[in-house]
């Protein structure tokens, strides 16, 4: 376990986006994904709270509204651990690029707002891999809220932070909850060296800046696109470089 303060030693690259709902992070990550694929990289994607193994339990807890700050935190950490072992680390070992929509910083923000001890959170997530780049999308709260309400019929109980008892009105509770999360994020920017992006700037302008930073990392790490690998004569199978001894006997060569 290298921890979040030490650079990982995998040949692959981990890029994460963070920010409150409506900060534009998912839009930007989608654009990065398409661009990297176009550039000939194999890209793997994972998002917060999406482990197939854990999802049902989280859903049950939310539906019955039985999650406490501790169990809310632990079930999300379980989910993260499963995705880390299954969908994040293997591509990193294979030298691929992994994009993550939200990462441990989401837990550090949300759970701290719910009153979970900050040091305990950091100890709990100690097994996480430090991202190569972590973008933080900062955006004025009103803009984020407008974006959220435009695309959604109603706010869910935990999403609105109604479990915190800040307000009975979901919209009002959401606003107060997000304000506190932003405060937590601001601390994390310094603590973990997150790269701040203005989520209210024009999409293209943000994207240009992000691409520049990503490209610098790709060059520095000497990441290889599929085209580079072909030139070097590596055999590609499903996008992975495979040495002859790893190949299934008799499997046809990839065209």
């Amino acid at each position: 376990m290298a921890g979040l303060h030490e650079t990982h030693s995998y040949p692959g690259m981990l890029i994460v986006v963070e920010g409150i709902d409506g900060s534009g992070k998912s839009t930007q990550l989608d654009l990065i994904r398409s661009w990297l694929i176009q550039e000939g990289y194999d890209v793997f994607f994972t998002e917060w709270n999406s482990s197939k193994l854990v999802k049902e339990t989280t859903k049950l807890g939310k539906k019955r509204q039985i999650l406490t700050p501790t169990t809310f935190c632990l079930i999300h950490c379980t989910d993260f651990s499963d995705r880390l072992q299954r969908t994040i680390i293997p591509p990193l070992q294979a030298g691929q690029i992994v994009l993550a929509d939200r990462y441990v910083y989401t837990a550090f923000g949300r759970d701290a707002v719910r009153g979970v001890d900050r040091q305990w959170l950091r100890d709990l997530y100690h097994f996480a891999v430090r991202p190569d780049i972590a973008f933080y999308f900062s955006v004025p709260l009103e803009i984020a809220i407008q974006r959220i309400f435009r695309g959604r019929a109603a706010l869910k109980y935990y999403e609105a932070g109604l479990d915190l008892g800040l307000s009975r009105d979901p919209a009002d509770s959401f606003r107060k909850f997000q304000t506190r999360i932003v405060e937590e994020y601001e601390r994390l920017v310094d603590e973990y060296g997150l790269v701040a992006v203005h989520g209210d700037h024009p999409i293209e302008k943000q994207q240009r800046r992000i691409r520049k930073i990503v490209m610098e990392h790709i060059n520095r790490k000497k990441m290889k696109s599929n085209e580079d690998r072909k030139h070097e004569g590596q055999i590609l199978w499903g996008g992975y470089p495979l040495t002859p001894e790893h190949r299934v006997t008799g499997a046809p060569d990839r065209p």
């Binding site: 854990v54 049902e56 379980t78 499963d82």
Partner: peptide
């Protein structure tokens, strides 16, 4: 909260050890 999910996750033996330790913590 976790009895059903944990029992299911253990059945297939596809869950990682650390994940299982966390599921038990939940």
């Amino acid at each position: 909260l976790a009895e059903e999910g944990l029992t299911k996750a253990k059945k297939g033996n596809i869950i990682g050890r650390q994940t299982l330790a966390l599921f038990y913590a939940t």
